[in-house]
């Protein structure tokens, strides 16, 4: 990796402090996501992973610090500029957050209708294709309440991909999926990165998935309320100076056993 030319930062989080009222969730977050990265936000439950994601997509305002996309300041942008940024994002929310009054296909069509000028038939074809990508062919005309939670989640990913975004934000995509679907999802993410060149920012704490797909990460430490480490999770697992990070990535087992073996 080091021999490659220096990749430019797609997203930079600079000195970010997140807070609700007087309660500081995380402070001094500072990291970069490079183009075509599969970047994982990890950490214990309730440490503010989803909150960080919400800051990155502009649903929450930072208490301090800024978020930059390709060097342009997103935090200080006005509403119109922000919309231009947001058009390049795709977001999947924790529970899928599909619009409950629309069918799965309509859920995916709506953003396409809003942001492009293509014909109804083409939009329908796109929606069917996106649903097929996440293994939901045949469920186009179901309402979100009529399919399972896992299917809602997958349809949420399909909707996030509706506009072929440059950056996909996925909030716990694998949680609640069976092992096979979860593996399929990892494969999907890798394929999309390779074929479309998308950048992924994923909130997760599923180690198997982290090691399978991520090449960059940030670890949020609940005790110190700041980032524990940032970098490739595989090298963090073995070489991080922060013990909490190593413990987390080794499921609490210290890697001493390996040394003796």
């Amino acid at each position: 990796m080091a021999s490659e030319p220096k990749e430019k930062a797609k997203i930079s989080v600079r000195d970010l402090t997140m807070a609700f009222g007087s309660f500081v969730v995380m402070k001094d977050l500072d990291f970069e996501v490079k183009e075509r990265d599969i970047f994982v936000i990890m950490g214990g439950s309730g440490c503010g992973k989803s909150t960080l994601l919400r800051h990155m997509i502009g649903l929450k305002e930072p208490r301090k610090g800024a978020i930059l996309y390709e060097g342009k300041n997103f935090t200080e942008a006005n509403e119109e500029e922000r919309l231009a940024f947001i058009r390049r994002f795709g977001v999947m929310y924790q529970s899928g957050a599909l619009w409950s009054s629309m069918t799965l296909a309509e859920n995916i069509s709506m953003p396409i209708e809003e942001h492009t000028q293509i014909s109804k038939a083409e939009i329908r074809d796109l929606a069917y294709y996106k649903l097929a990508l996440v293994g939901l062919s045949g469920y186009e005309d179901y309402y979100p309440a009529q399919v399972s939670g896992g299917m809602n989640k997958r349809a949420g990913i399909a909707r996030a991909m509706a506009l072929d975004p440059e950056i996909l934000f996925l909030d716990e995509p694998g949680a609640g999926l069976d092992p096979l679907s979860s593996q399929r999802l990892d494969e999907l993410i890798l394929r999309l990165r390779d074929s479309l060149g998308s950048t992924f920012v994923i909130v997760t704490h599923e180690l198997a998935s982290i090691f399978a797909i991520a090449n960059n990460s940030v670890f949020l430490d609940t005790d110190t309320r700041t980032q524990g480490a940032t970098g490739d999770p595989k090298s963090l697992r073995d070489h991080s100076e922060n013990e909490t990070v190593r413990m987390f990535l080794n499921r609490g087992e210290t890697p001493e056993d390996e040394e003796s073996a």
Binding site: S100, P111, E114
Partner: peptide
């Protein structure tokens, strides 16, 4: 209110609606 609880309103925002 339930759309809000289910993050559907967030989803509207991030799709530029």
């Amino acid at each position: 209110g339930s759309m809000n609880a289910n993050q559907e309103i967030d989803a509207l925002k991030t799709f530029g609606f």
